[in-house]
Amino acid sequence: MQEDDSEGKNVSAAADLTRDRQKRERETWTKVLASLAETRDKRLFAELFSHFGPRIKAYIIRLGLPAASAEEVTQEAMLSVWRKAHMFNASKASASTWIYTLARNLCIDRMRKEKAVEYELPEDEVDPSPRHLGEHAILEQRMKAALGTLPEAQAQVLFLSYYEGKSHSEIAEQLGIPLGSVKSRLRLAFDKLKTHWEAQS
């Protein structure tokens, strides 16, 4: 019992550390982006590129674009970071959130143009590569550190929605639960996150 407890504490202390580090990182990148907007310094842009480029690419691949298109969209996204930096408002969003929305929008446009792969799959065909469970578990770990401690069921729907771009109905079908449960889990997760963010700031 005692051991379990202390282990639990260590784990949560480790998670706190990770969260603190992530918070500091987030703030640092926000400052870098804000000063890029002011100075138009290409060295700052290169720093942002090396941090966000590979993350955007990973995100876009997860959403289902092939690696070559993901590379193109990522380059396009980074180019818009440069061009739109003057519109970034550090009091409204962090750099990661702002860049996320830019990348997401470009990715959606591209998927529409390429007539999203999912519509070409025959209706009943199961996704041939349901993302490997091991990878899933690791990502969920990292995500939990990033997002605070969400119960498994809530983390899962967030994951499927934001990382795999699945609609509520698709998630309901995949998990074999009613649409209403998907939505209520998402709402609960969102409430928890907001509380967590308030505590953090």
């Binding site: 966000f52 590979p54 380059q75 996320y100 996150l193």
Partner: peptide
Amino acid sequence: QTDRIGGDLLEAIEPVAMEPDA
């Protein structure tokens, strides 16, 4: 705020290397 979830996830994702000349 709902966008922020995406931003936080972007930070947590396992990066994939860009092309060398990107």
